[in-house]
Design a binder for these strands. Structure first.
Lengths: 189, 189
DNA sequence: AGCAAAATCTTTACAGTGTAAAAATTGCGA
DNA sequence: TCGCAATTTTTACACTGTAAAGATTTTGCT
């Protein structure tokens, strides 16, 4: 197996550095650079793997429910669950600063994930969504679902929800809060 | 003026390093360390300033509207506008990894921002919210609004919405999308 | 098989970085 | 003014990403 592939088996993303992955892979410190060009390249390649895992989890979750509503809820929960299980990877995937979205593998993986989201929204609206041309309503529905779940996930991973949770009635769980958030009427203003 | 204070006048947050702020402040490279302890301390102090600015913008926006609905919308727009005007700062404020939330100044500034959000939600629900004890409904409403706006903001700053925007009907603006997202019915599942 | 070319890896080097400890300087109150 | 504490500089170290050049291995082709 090539060093490049060994590098991509890393699971802890905390202290991710070119030299660290080189050490772990048992190669010289400059070897990874040859494969990935630079740190941005390595991170982008890892993020692409993340998007594929992430998408697979969502597809699997969507297959479980019976109604469109159940499927949507299952997918939303799978979204948060994936992020909780792989917080470092989720951060990598959605922190554009160190990402090169023009890399084909990353671009494609991210696009497939987005298509899954759009398809899911179309399903729940009982209409076929043409990704190339969205109506305002469709775009709003997609962005609403995405913002809601992504925002919740980010706040959760960044520890911004612990205070709210602690101040909720005794016995309240994160799951309960998440469901209540999704099911309620949105208009906050 | 002390070097420490000069450091905090930095506006570009892109290449923020201890040594960079030292250079800009015209002090030795190790001077900032004495004031802030370490990089986490510096970043946390900057984030506290950000939260205060941010909160001021929200309060100002809330004063403009007549009805509770108008106020809420104005605040939501001010939220996104602040993040667009200070993307580096917004990232700093919500990227916990390099933040020390136990720092009194940061903790307090972040709490005031949260109280503003909670108060805004209480206003739109026509009820007084006791921050120390939230009902499930109240917590869900707060987290829903926060997730929605924070998620939208993050996706926007990370460039994840440009594709959606490009595929919307000709003439659609970000503002239009944002309003449509907020006004629609939420249940994505 | 043999050999040239391409891919892969190592070595060496350099400019930055955060952080720690000691030395030097400054400011200020008694 | 003197002394002490706050502040800053100096020096040092172990890291980091990146670049360039040489060494090695793998691959493809006749």
């Amino acid at each position: 197996m090539k060093a490049a592939e060994r590098v991509l088996e890393r699971d802890g993303l905390a202290g991710l550095t070119l030299r660290a992955v080189a050490r772990e892979a048992g190669v010289s410190h400059a070897a990874p650079t040859h494969h990935f060009g630079d740190l941005t390249g390595l991170v982008s390649e890892l993020a692409a793997i993340g998007f594929r895992q992430f998408n697979a989890a969502m597809v699997a979750a969507g297959a479980s429910g019976a109604t469109a509503i159940e499927k949507g809820l299952a997918r939303a929960k799978a979204y948060v669950t994936y992020a909780q299980a792989h917080p470092g990877m989720y951060g990598l995937m959605f922190r554009t600063e160190r990402l090169d979205m023009s890399r084909p593998s990353l671009h494609e993986a991210a696009n497939i994930s987005f298509a899954g989201l759009a398809g899911s929204i179309g399903e729940s609206r009982h209409e076929q969504i043409q990704e190339r041309a969205l109506s305002l309503d469709q775009a709003a529905a997609i962005v609403r679902a995405w913002s809601l779940v992504h925002g919740f996930t980010m706040l959760l991973l960044d520890g911004r929800l612990t205070d709210v949770l602690n101040r909720m009635p005794h016995g309240s769980t994160l799951d309960l809060l998440f469901e209540a958030m999704l099911k309620g009427n949105t208009k906050p203003c």
